[in-house]
Design a binder for these strands. Structure first.
Length: 299
DNA sequence: GTATGTACCTGTTTGC
DNA sequence: TGCAAACAGGTACATA
């Protein structure tokens, strides 16, 4: 599942293998991945054909490729999207959605957008040189040199939502998904249900620091991979999943204290945490204790 | 402006 | 064995 490190790995691959090449043709094999291109698949294809890719940029989990037309190809991998560079004639992937012909130095290639679950998407943005207007609302990510840490602390502490939900809000901080939110919170020793407004500035900084640590580590190892749904442009998976502390480790011992990692439902997905290292907030007056969470103390 | 819940998707796993 | 339900989760959107 692509989060910031995975998307950055893909961006680097695009910078190496696609920038400087000309798009010779576009084949939209499924309409859903271009649903955000409101002018339709034919317009999407014609706006890209015979255009040269000038760069490969990223904001959070969004990628965009400025073109010599002044437009940009804007993309998001969603949950299962892949951008692969393949030789012409390579067998089609099972979930191949959009194919781009590429000409330039060396043999002809294809850029392929493969997406099993089709949460991802591609569109052509009219703004190529700068941040596309479609993603102007996406905040900078924690690894961005221009990320404003003080503003982040301020915004988190103004919110009365749980810190995990805030971390997943891409308008507050980008690039954090379910996996790295759990990992960052574990590193900071903060439970995801703790309200932003109830955290100290120091705790918010520790969560941010945890996010940076886990993202840097993942980036170093080429991204997280669980089920072959995430691969880089060469089709290679990352190996970071071996280093995850809580995500996907329910019932296994916490790597720090040995307590059993817990998994609870959260926003139609899962949260993983150590009930000892990350003490849940006290239930509001009148609320009953959640049996899934227990007392928070297991030793 | 903020908080919260849900639709969108498909392949795999789980349970009956 | 076969079917149905649950599950995975990022984003946009609707509602309060």
């Amino acid at each position: 599942m692509p989060e910031l490190p995975e998307v950055e790995v893909v961006r680097r691959g695009l910078a190496d293998h696609v920038v400087g090449r000309r798009i010779t043709g576009v084949d939209v094999l499924h309409q859903r991945p271009v649903r955000r291109h409101l002018a339709g698949p034919d317009h999407f294809a014609s706006a890209l054909t015979d255009r040269t890719v000038l760069g490969a940029h990223r904001r959070g989990k969004y990628l965009w490729l400025p073109l010599d037309s002044g437009d940009a190809l804007l993309g998001h991998l969603g949950m299962s999207g892949q951008l692969l560079v393949q030789p012409v004639g390579a067998p089609d992937e099972r979930h191949l959605r959009v194919r781009f012909g590429l000409a330039g130095d060396g043999p002809e290639r294809e850029l392929r957008f493969v997406d099993q679950r089709m949460f991802g998407g591609l569109s052509v943005s009219a703004q190529g040189a700068e941040l596309p207007q479609e993603i102007a609302h996406i905040a900078r990510d924690p690894l961005d040199p221009l990320f404003d840490e003080e503003q982040f602390v301020h915004r988190v502490r103004r919110r009365s939502s749980g810190i995990k939900r805030i971390l997943l809000d891409q308008t507050v901080v980008s690039g954090v998904g379910n996996i790295y939110a759990d990992e960052a919170l574990w590193r900071a020793g903060v439970h995801g249900d703790r309200l932003g407004a109830k955290l100290t500035a120091r705790q918010v900084r520790e969560v941010l620091s945890g996010a940076r640590e886990v993202m840097r580590a993942a980036l170093h190892e080429g991204g997280t991979s669980f089920d072959a749904l995430y691969v880089n442009v060469n089709g290679e998976s990352g190996y970071f999943d071996r280093s995850l502390a809580v995500y996907g480790r329910a019932g296994q011992p916490c790597r720090r204290c040995g307590a059993q990692v817990e998994r609870v439902a959260f926003m139609n997905r899962s949260s993983h945490f150590c009930p000892v290292c990350q003490r849940p907030p006290r239930a509001p007056r009148g609320a009953t204790a959640s049996p899934a969470r227990g007392s928070g103390r297991r030793h």
